[in-house]
Amino acid sequence: MSYFDRHNRPTPGAVKGVFAHLDCLVDGIDQLKKAGVKDFIVTSPLPRHEIEEMMYEGRPSPVRWFNLAGALFGGSSGFSLAALTHLNWPMIIPAGKPLVSIPAFIIITFEATVLFGCLFTLIGLLVHCRLPANDLQYEVKDPRYSDDHFGIIVNNLTADTAEKVRGILAHTGAVEVSGMEAAHAS
């Protein structure tokens, strides 16, 4: 099986539910969690706090540490660049003006803080979102998810648990349930 074939075929052990309504989706997530199902992905065409709250229960994204690290790195390297290059070639400045001038170097420090803070955040975003993502499973690649539908993709199911999951998805209002076996419309 080629690389592309692998990601353009239904994933073994996966069930997909497509939802047209947000409240049904949230209900579906809730029911799956109550049933002890943990390995599932939710897709949506827009960010919704309800989904994030249900999936992550208020845990903040680790991207913030990238932001902090970048800002600290940028600020310290910006100030060091300005200060060390002036100390490397010390000039006698009249009127007792300092060689390492804090007010003048604050500008470079600030700009480098912002620049590296943003670039590190970008790296954090790409790392944690796993972008560029060319290995996402077949079930996630439904064009409706970027338009007007929501989705739940449950993975690593056995024949028994798949039947139970399909039942939960259909019961909570999925407009389409597919995977493992023939599609079931609710």
Binding site: M55, S61, V63, V114, L122, L131, A133, Y145
Partner: peptide, 22 residues
């Protein structure tokens, strides 16, 4: 390869806020 998964939106919104703040 964006697909709007819960994982992607979670980190995306956090990063977007930081970009805006910076």
């Amino acid at each position: 390869g964006w697909r709007g998964t819960d994982r992607q939106w979670r980190h995306y919104m956090a990063a977007y806020g930081f970009f805006a703040a910076f």
